[in-house]
Amino acid sequence: MKLTLRLWRQRSARDTGRFEQYQVADISPDMSFLEMLDSLNEQLCAERKEPVAFDHDCREGICGMCSLVINGLAHGSDRGVAACQLHMRRFKDGDMITIEPWRAKAFPIIKDLVVDRSAFDRIIQAGGYVSVDTGDAPEANTVPVPKPAAETAMDAAACIGCGACVAACPNASAMLFVAAKVSHLAKLPQGQEERRRRVRSMVEAMDREGFGNCTNHFECMAACPKSIHVTFIARLNREYLKASTRRSSEDIH
């Protein structure tokens, strides 16, 4: 296949950035999208031009590093997969493909297609954990967890923290990301102690980072490589409301 790529190039956070056009040839349908970009970079390298910077690592859809908006869609057109799992058989010879970075105020661009997602780490730091020190744990089977609760927790925990939800949302909201972690831990008995404090601090952190709020576009779910469901956002809202209205012993400390 021969393809035309319209690619976002930006030297640094301070640069304004622009689209540039490139041609690639000999692209096999079995190649992954990132392998196609590798081949562009090999070509640029041979022409003594600077390769395109893009984030990637595991290339099997689980590390959450890759972050490309392909033809206007975060991670491309395939449902439930990350960009690294998108393969070139989805494209036709002669296609023009537009490739952009995640765009959100809270994800500043570092270079070309690479953005800074450290805001997500700071949201987790605010409370996305169970406070148990190593060695303090009781025997694992002491507390049974009903299978449906464990399954729902796992559905939420599957989030890979890639940020596609933010990139896809017209409000650049991180609510699906926050909802996934809040729901995962709220569903399990281990997460109960800190349940209220957790949701409040994580939502506060999210607001502090400059993410927007959910206005029910559901673009996040469509873009999510793990198909995390928007009902978790409803759960987040409920958790937040409950935590904000009820006083609990946690608040006294």
Partner: peptide
């Protein structure tokens, strides 16, 4: 035990 206590599903 540790992982279960952390909420690993």
């Amino acid at each position: 035990d540790q992982c279960v206590a952390q909420g690993v599903p």
